[in-house]
Design a protein around this nucleic acid. Structure first.
Lengths: 148, 148
DNA sequence: TTCGATGCAAATGTTTTGCAGGACC
DNA sequence: GGTCCTGCAAAACATTTGCATCGAA
C-alpha cells in the first residue's frame, strides 16, 4: 500500500544515506526534504521549496536549498524536470515515474503515467541501446482543448 | 530532391513571409536567417548564430539575434530545443523533424529520426487528444556505451 | 577538534526589456 | 513620414560560487 514507506521513514532513510556518504545531518537538509515529502510527489520549484522550508527554518537561504537539492539528486533520491522556459521542477524519485506533456498554446501541464511510454522506451532500447529515463524534460505539443 | 527548396529560395520565402505580416526586410534579419540556413539543419545556439552573423554584419547585437529568432519562431520557420542545462539550440523547421536523446552520463547527444516516435505520438493522441510536437525538449537517458 | 555545511553577497550565464536614434516602405 | 527595427545598456531570472563562520560528529 505504501511501497516507499511512511514520510518519517523516508526522512530517516535519506538521513542515513547522507551520513553513510560522510555527509552531515543538518536542520536545513531535514527541512528541505520535509518540504519535498509534503509535496506528496507533486512538482515544486526551488523557489517554492525555499518558501516552504523557510516556514520551518527562517534562517535557510536559497543557495542551501539548491545545494541540498543537488545532494538529494546525487543520492538518487530526488530529480528535476524542465517543464518550459521557467525554473526547474523538483520531486522525490520514489514517488514519481511520470512524463509531462505541456501545451504550447495554453501552458497546461498534463501529467502522464510513464507506462504510456513503455513501448517507445523499449523500441529505442532495441534500436539504439539508449535507455530512456522518465521525463527529465517535458514533451511539447497541443492539448485536446487547444487543437480544436 | 530538395523538398524545402534551395537556400536562396528559402531566404526569399522567409522574407516574403515577414513582409506579408507587416514586417521589414532588414540586413540583420537576412544575416541571421543565412546563418541558420548555413547550418544545414544542424543545431546552433543563439551565441553561435550571433558569432556567425557578426562575420557578415559586424554591427549586429545579441538582442537582435534573439528578437529575430523569436520572430522566425512566430512565423513557424524556426524552432528551438532544450538539450540540457545550457542555452537553447535553434534550427530551421523545414529542415528538421528530429528528437534528441541526451546521455546523462557522458552528455552525448543522439539525433533520432522523428519516425521512431510515431507510434508514441499516435498512441498519446488516441488516448488523450494531445498532439505531441517533435522534440522541443530532449529526452534524457543513458547511451549504449555508458550503460554497460 | 575537525571538516563539512551554512549564510551572505557577489558572480554567472542566458535571455529580455526600455529607450532614443536610424532605417525601411 | 510614419512605423518598425536596431543598438546599446541595463534589468531580469535562475542558479552557482567564494569565503568566513558555524556546528555536527
Amino acid at each position: 500500500m505504501n511501497k516507499a514507506g511512511a514520510p518519517a521513514d523516508q526522512l530517516d532513510i535519506a538521513m542515513r544515506l547522507i551520513r553513510q556518504r560522510g555527509g552531515r545531518c543538518t536542520r536545513p537538509r531535514r527541512v528541505v526534504l520535509e518540504a519535498l515529502l509534503d509535496a506528496g510527489g507533486q512538482l515544486r520549484t526551488a523557489e517554492e521549496l525555499f518558501a516552504i522550508s523557510r516556514r520551518s527554518d527562517p534562517e535557510i537561504t536559497e543557495s542551501t536549498v539548491y545545494r541540498t537539492l543537488t545532494l538529494l539528486e546525487d543520492l538518487g533520491l530526488a530529480s528535476h524536470v524542465h517543464l518550459g522556459h521557467g525554473p526547474s521542477h523538483w520531486y522525490l524519485k520514489a514517488a514519481r515515474a511520470r512524463w509531462y506533456l505541456t501545451c504550447s498554446a495554453c501552458d497546461a501541464v498534463i501529467d502522464t503515467d510513464a507506462a504510456v511510454f513503455d513501448h517507445l522506451v523499449d523500441d529505442i532500447a532495441a534500436r539504439t541501446g539508449f535507455k530512456v529515463d522518465a521525463g527529465h524534460f517535458a514533451v511539447t505539443g497541443t492539448c485536446a482543448a487547444c487543437s480544436t
